[in-house]
Design a protein around this nucleic acid. Structure first.
Length: 416
RNA sequence: GCGGCCUUGGUGUAGAGGUAACACAACAGAUUGUGGUUCUGUCAUCAGGGGUUCGAUUCCCCUAGGCCGCCCCA
């Protein structure tokens, strides 16, 4: 094979697209009900945007970005996530302001240069939402509810919702200090990665899954134990609202997400059928991001759903077969003259709103009917010299195998 | 970025150091203009490159890609 798609990049083939369409429709429906509006941003942005928003020490920025210098000598990056780009667009076009709720959703490809494996691709797709303008935990709850609702509508109810609070600028430094203090004695016994985390992003040490680090972390303080009054109250009311809404969730004190911009609420929705890459949805609050990017102090919450993973879950648990759509009518012309007429008839049928196709190969009638059958056509229209001279067509009902000779107009009426 | 396994026709598989088997799909045919059954035929030089060998698709190396784990995340 001379050419193949780039590593970690796979297309979505016709066999799978119906499933994607089901997901997209389900999302659209719910977004509309929750009053979210679509935004589409470019896939390419200035590299600085992501470095600033996501954080220079995060894995995404330090080793996973698709960056290059363009012909105008600009450092650009294929977006590794959408939030930064959405915030940029909102600031550029003045879409957000304090005390006004702006609710946006997006859908599209993201790019991360990682080692591919099941459920992890270098180009992958996310649907997500961003809500700007409110610091109320009720909005956090709404976003979680929306995600859960989408999964439920797709027939998935056994997903696990993990929630945590990582605090805000006021209480996080306090926590970090405490954590550093706690780790000071044992850090030498921990892994190399943890040493780095200890220096640059101490909180992320909590995320380490290595056994030798695990048992040190187990006893470590958690963010929730150091929340300031505001963060604690917000976190508690979020949990309260979720309980009231009947959403099953688990407080996971070790859930520390890998993007620097999160404050207060962080959450993840995981599935047990995905293997190592088990998160289908990740989200949280980011109250400082808008101002960090040069905008006003506007709080925000959002989530992103990984579509490849969602498709994978649907395929394994629901066995949602995605059948190709069938057509209604198939034309079987016999001979060149008939072919010319068939093209006209075909056009008329389509204008009348009927999904129709025809044989362009000049195949034998047998082969044409076989094709009609395979395409799932309800009717075949046979058009030979005899019918042509009589100005009629043969309408064959592919299900009952009965057929009649009649004018094309009559045939159309019957089909409709 | 690290480690392990893997790569045969459109798909799923078999195979041995001496020049590829099976199933499904596809296409064609089984006398004249009729489908979903049956029968017959056609369809690969074994990811790419290099090496060992009288000879490799089967052995070795490199590259690319896939899968699994780590890391991280969606």
């Amino acid at each position: 094979m001379k050419y193949q798609s780039l590593r970690g990049m796979k297309g979505i083939l016709p066999e799978e697209t119906p499933l994607w369409q089901i997901i997209e429709k389900t999302c659209d429906k719910n977004f509309q009900r929750f009053n979210y509006h679509e935004i589409r941003t470019p896939v390419l942005e200035m590299s600085d945007l992501f470095t600033r928003a996501v954080g220079g020490n995060t894995d995404i920025v330090s080793k996973e970005m698709y960056s290059f210098v363009d012909r105008g000598n600009r450092k650009v990056t294929l977006r590794p996530e959408a939030t930064a780009a959405v915030v940029r667009a909102c600031l550029q076009h003045n879409l957000i302001s304090k005390d006004k709720l702006t609710k946006l959703f997006y859908f599209g490809p993201m790019f991360r240069y990682e080692r591919p494996q099941a459920g992890r691709y270098r180009q992958f797709h996310q649907v997500g939402i961003e809500t700007f303008g409110s610091a109320s935990p009720a909005v956090d709850a709404e976003t979680i509810l929306l995600a859960v609702k989408i999964f439920r509508d797709l027939g998935l109810s056994d997903l696990e919702v993990d929630i945590n609070s990582v605090g805000c600028n006021k209480c996080r430094p306090n926590f970090t200090q405490n954590l550093k203090h706690y780790l000071k004695g044992s850090i030498v016994k921990m892994c190399e990665d943890c040493h780095k985390r200890y220096q640059h992003n101490t909180m992320r040490v909590l995320d380490c899954k290595k056994p030798k680090c695990q048992h040190i972390i187990e006893e470590a303080p958690s963010t929730v134990d150091f929340l300031c009054d505001e963060c604690r109250v917000d976190f508690e009311s979020l949990l309260y609202i979720l309980k009231n809404l009947g959403i099953n969730f688990k407080v996971n004190k070790r859930l520390v997400r890998g993007l620097d911009y999160y404050t207060k609420t962080t959450y993840e929705i995981v599935s047990n059928v995905l293997g190592a890459q088990n998160a289908v949805c990740g989200g949280g609050r980011y109250d400082k991001l808008v101002s960090d990017l040069g905008g006003p102090e506007v709080p925000a919450v959002g989530f992103a759903i990984g579509l490849e993973r969602l498709v994978e879950i649907l395929k394994t648990t629901k066995a949602l077969s995605s059948k190709p759509q069938a057509i209604t009518l198939y034309f079987a012309p016999l001979g060149d003259k008939a072919k010319i007429s068939a093209i006209e008839y075909l056009h008329k049928a389509r204008q009348a709103g009927i999904s129709a196709d025809m044989d362009y190969f000049g195949k034998k009638l047998k082969a044409q009917l076989k094709n009609a059958d395979r395409l799932g056509a309800l009717y075949a229209l046979i058009l030979g010299d005899d019918e042509l001279s009589r100005n009629t067509v043969i309408l064959r009902d592919m299900i009952s195998s009965s057929q009649t000779e009649l004018s094309f107009e009559e045939a159309l009426k019957k089909i409709k």
